[in-house]
Nucleic acid binder design. Sequence first.
DNA 1: GACATTGAATTGTTCAACACTTGACATTGT
DNA 2: ACAATGTCAAGTGTTGAACAATTCAATGTC
Lengths: 228, 228
Amino acid sequence: MERSQIHRVSVADQVASVLRQKILSGELRPGHALQEVPLAASLGVSRNTVREATRILSLEGLLKRSIHRGVAVSQLSPKDVQEIYHLRRMLEIPAVLAARGSRDGVLPELKAALEGYEQSVSEKDWLQAVSYDLQFHSLLIRFLQNERLESFYQKLIAEVRMGMVLVDRSHDDPGRLIPVHRKIYQLLTAGKLKQCAALLSQHLDDSEARLTSVMVGQGWKKFPKSVG
Amino acid sequence: MERSQIHRVSVADQVASVLRQKILSGELRPGHALQEVPLAASLGVSRNTVREATRILSLEGLLKRSIHRGVAVSQLSPKDVQEIYHLRRMLEIPAVLAARGSRDGVLPELKAALEGYEQSVSEKDWLQAVSYDLQFHSLLIRFLQNERLESFYQKLIAEVRMGMVLVDRSHDDPGRLIPVHRKIYQLLTAGKLKQCAALLSQHLDDSEARLTSVMVGQGWKKFPKSVG
DNA sequence: GACATTGAATTGTTCAACACTTGACATTGT
DNA sequence: ACAATGTCAAGTGTTGAACAATTCAATGTC
């Protein structure tokens, strides 16, 4: 039997998953403070379990703990964005350059992510579009065949995603990114890795600039009690 | 027991620190199982606090949780070593190549780590020697001026350190590494970054080979109840 | 207005209890 | 013998209540 498939997860991990999804979907916005007792009550679990869950998420960087002051959804500063994109360039570019050896297994998944992205955009499902967009980039990292790196990259992606879901889509059309992703995929399949890396680098610069401009546009505060 | 040190940040974090140090010093060997109740009793804290601490360390990779089976000190497989050194090359080499701009602040610290290493070796304090060795490499990462990356690298270093402290020093003389570290430092101060990177790469290959050979030498088991 | 004081609210920690899982051992049936 | 099954103790997972420690805002004093 497949033991790995069986529902075998601790409650604390499940609570962490629920909260993680609410953060990444934008339901819990950056800066939002979480109180243990109401949260435990609303989820039907004990306070200790909530504490374990928030401990997990704070180590993932999605929540920020201040001792005796509680936890709040993390807020990216422009410096954070800069740091994260520095790392993305540093990891994704070597990844595509290493794509020669281990391309075969990943390419179908890249294609699926690409098509999922295009369809989400056509349906104006921005949340899912962001998800597919970032999945596409995550798959690039897989070329490096390093599980620790993938896990680290996932954490980075979770952080940018937290910021991206807040982008106002009325002034930012994700559709225009379709040709770029498609071109990256084409260059990859064609083995033109140098060109692909160059395009990717440009794409990341663009993405960073867009996210940064959004963040400075919305002047958000330090520690609001509640948002939304 | 060790309550004397415990009173600054949260107790759970302090327990995590105590355990972390015991793991990294080799007092708790890979595979060693930790039981909540005895551990809580010996540290003078509650079971819940121990659970929070083990949660922290398991997310850092130092402990491994198996649901309903407890936690045990993580064991590196040869594949883990390979992965970690892949990442070390991938991070440290770009770091020295980026040393041109931000060299000044770090160089004194590098020199201090170098001298600390040499003195520890002369005193045959292997544990401290390993510590200074790894600190030297950690400082290289600082050239990239990226806090997230430093934190990730620290986690990697903690993992290799867990393996390194078990190396049998009677068959492995750390003193022979002194010239290498010194040369790396000299090339760095001279601005000969390409040469420095080449030497570093070679040094990492050597380090990986040494650690791997040690691990296969000691044929360790999957999940022993207790070691030592 | 600046500054101590009080006190409610919230987090940090402990404790005891119970449910659930595991692994080892004993029992059964063949 | 021996494999399948049942039993049981030990350990983890989770809960709920309690208390200690800290923060923060409101109050009172000078």
